[in-house]
Simulated assay, not measured.
Amino acid sequence: MSVFLALALASARDLLGVHGAWGAFRDADRCYAIARPEISGGRARWRPFASVGTFPKRGQRNALHVRLSRARDRSGRVTLSVGERRFALAATGTDAWAPDAATERAIVGAMRSGRSMSVEAVAVGGRPFADTYRLDGAATAIDAAALACLGRR
Rank of each mutant, 00 (worst) to 15 (best):
P99Q: 11
V78W: 08
G93F: 12
G93M: 08
G93A: 13
R85W: 00
A98I: 00
T79R: 11
T103Q: 03
V82L: 01
R85S: 13
E84P: 06
P99F: 02
D100R: 10
R85F: 01
A102R: 03
G83A: 07
A101C: 09
V78T: 04
A96C: 01
R70F: 03
R85L: 07
R67L: 09
R72T: 06
G83P: 02
S75E: 12
R67A: 14
V78I: 07
T92L: 04
S75Y: 03
G76E: 12
S81E: 11
P99T: 07
A71L: 09
A98K: 00
A98W: 12
F87S: 02
D73F: 03
D73P: 02
S81Y: 08
A91M: 11
D100G: 04
T92D: 13
G76W: 03
S69I: 14
P99K: 01
T79C: 01
R77S: 15
L89V: 12
G83R: 12
E104H: 06
A90D: 12
I107R: 00
T79G: 00
D100H: 03
V66I: 14
V78K: 06
L68Y: 04
L68R: 08
S81R: 12
A88W: 05
L68D: 10
G93P: 10
D73I: 14
R72L: 04
D73Q: 15
A96V: 04
F87D: 01
A98M: 10
D95I: 01
D73W: 13
A98L: 05
L80Y: 12
T92F: 01
D95Y: 00
E84A: 14
S69L: 10
G83T: 01
R72P: 03
L68M: 15
A90W: 08
I107M: 00
S75Q: 14
R72H: 06
G93Q: 05
T103D: 10
R86L: 13
V78C: 02
R74N: 15
R72K: 13
R74P: 11
V82H: 07
